[in-house]
Design a protein around this nucleic acid. Structure first.
Lengths: 355, 355
DNA sequence: CTGAAAGCGCTAACAA
DNA sequence: TTGTTAGCGCTTTCAG
């Protein structure tokens, strides 16, 4: 007995190099034309009920399913979307990725993942080339700060692109973010209200819009209370860098803040680790910490982090919706969506009026 | 001025629906045949240096790059690989995904991501159908336990599949795992040696090979020391379930273990949270905790988790290597690779001889 | 509604 | 080495 050969045997199948049944196989078996088979499997094409039934039956018998790649060659739509992401160690992104995948799957799209560190233009350029080669219908970039140079290239290619959790301003590509300035502003006002007076900031990477906006926000929030930051260092969205910044600011020669606003949760965890385990400070008694994102671990008891929550679910939904709209009509006007988030007060800050 | 139209204008380009230049455009511009262009861009095809230069020049001028989809239609290779994954909230998987993406990218493959919860066969079935529709060259499943039913379907399709961090036994598809039985066995012996006498287990999901093997391993390790588990509950690789199990075992009516071996780090964090913050137990003074995987957070000071380290990097490399080998030669014999990991002793267990 | 035929952009025989 | 030709599997006119 040969080691392959399914229930029906493979005699029916064409010589095709893929080993899969083709529409022609189905057509022959159903005694209809190949184009009839195509119509049955093409949304919006017309076929009689009888025809449809015969074809479906034959198709099922030999396990036929249309070749998406061949279809895309002619329709010009691959039903694939590129998701470009810089890294996944910040839990915010795996979480988003999971949601993106599900949301796109539901709409009949699939995700081609491209990982490219925020490095040189050259690397990014290579990735852009590759993704264009695959004829993706759309592009979502997350946690990645593509240079204007590259976004222009994408635009010229005519493929809709959306920036997720980043933006390049009014003139840049459409984007979906939360209102970072406003969020960080609220954090600032909250901290002041809670009685903190020496507030410092471990900022997000200043090469990213989120990093810059959150810094602007906290400064603005404090300014509205007649205060300003007692210290500010770039944490680069990186654990090690954030730890170093914490040591500098909270160590013996530091600026002695009584509260630290950190550019995202991922860094805030690192900051907490240094505060508690290296500097033996109590949180929130000796120093408060506030993060940004509200990733899952933020609510885990070990961290129990006060943080500004980004509405990931809505952000993803909006991104998917906007992208698909643009795939269907590439000439839609640019639009920068900003969703509002909400402050989650947890255990790394003392309650208002508590001391 | 029209809002589109690149440097060269678009006059050169064909009526193609994709908006990209085709090999024919290049051919005309270079004054050669279309197939000559193809050869220049096809690895292993021959073209004279002169020809190559002319074509490359023309191609660069109009920004031509081959259409991978069209190519795959004829070569029968899409250079896409499906990565099927159940969830990404256990950091082990985003980490693996990141490595997979990079490793495959280096070898000229790209990843189509499919998320499918370990649910019904029906859902999984749909995912398998979809991934077959895209004519992927290979399949990697991670953290997902496909039924034999589905693996059979994949096998019949003739597409090489590799199980990452799971296996279905000698008769199942090729797989790459670490030696879970041996790893857990070592954990058992280590705990005994460290003086623990009442060891319990929050197991990984018993529907997965890793869950079963690690349980078998810990039992075996203890047996070799003439001991056995004082308790064992299935944590389902889920935080909530693991927390519940911890409450049951370590609460007032529990089996009062002095050490807990947890099926993976992701659950171990949850276990630690319950132990410390709900039950007010000190770790490791009152109770020890050992995880499995050695994800990044395991070494963060807040957890500082003793755990058995899986060699992710080698696992991914091996998986990628094996899969590509099989893509090139589908008739290679099945092979189950088991890599060895190593115990990382950290702060959630006391040192040997310490008490 | 259905079939025949053209062709998406490309690679691979085959001749020259 | 090069050009010509024939498709890969499919959708989409266009006649009937």
């Amino acid at each position: 007995m040969p080691s392959f050969g399914g229930p029906q045997g493979r005699s029916e199948r064409a010589k095709g190099r893929t080993g899969r049944a083709t529409s022609l196989d189905v057509a022959r078996r159903a005694g209809v034309s190949q184009s009839a088979v195509s119509r049955v499997f093409t949304e919006g094409a017309s076929a009689s009920a009888a025809m449809s039934k015969r074809v479906q039956k034959a198709a099922k018998e030999i396990g036929y399913r249309p070749n998406v790649l061949a279809r895309s060659l002619i329709t010009g739509r691959s039903r694939m979307v590129a998701l470009v992401v810089a890294y996944l160690d910040n839990q915010f992104y795996p979480d988003a990725l999971e949601r993106f995948s599900k949301a796109f799957q539901e709409k009949g799209y699939h995700i081609l993942v491209f990982l490219t560190p925020n490095g040189t233009d050259q690397q990014a350029q290579a990735v852009v080339d590759e993704l264009l080669d695959y004829q993706v219908d759309g592009i979502v970039t997350a946690s990645v700060s593509l240079s204007e140079n590259l976004t222009r290239r994408c635009r010229e290619s005519g493929i809709p692109m959306l920036l997720f959790n980043r933006n390049q301003g009014e003139e840049g590509p459409p984007s979906v973010t939360s209102d970072n300035v406003d969020g960080a502003r609220k954090v600032g006002k909250f901290l002041v209200q809670a009685g903190y007076r020496r507030i410092a900031h471990v900022s997000g990477w200043q090469g990213s819009s989120t990093g810059r906006e959150r810094e602007r926000g906290i400064r603005q929030g404090l300014a509205e209370c007649g205060m300003q930051l007692v210290g500010c260092l770039d944490g680069m969205y990186d654990r090690q860098t954030a730890m170093q910044a914490t040591r500098r600011m909270c160590g013996p020669d530091g600026c002695k803040p009584d509260a630290l606003f950190v550019g995202n949760d991922h860094m805030a965890f690192a900051v907490l680790d240094v505060l508690r385990h290296e500097l033996s400070l109590r949180v929130p008694e000796d120093i408060a910490v506030v993060g940004y994102d509200d990733v899952q671990a933020a609510s885990w008891p070990s961290y129990d982090l006060t943080t500004f929550s980004q509405p990931v679910e809505r952000m993803v939904e909006t991104t998917v919706g906007e992208l698909i709209k643009r795939i269907k009509d590439p000439d839609l006007p640019r639009r920068q969506v900003r969703l509002v988030g909400e402050l989650k007060v947890r255990g790394t800050t003392r309650r208002v009026g508590e001391a």
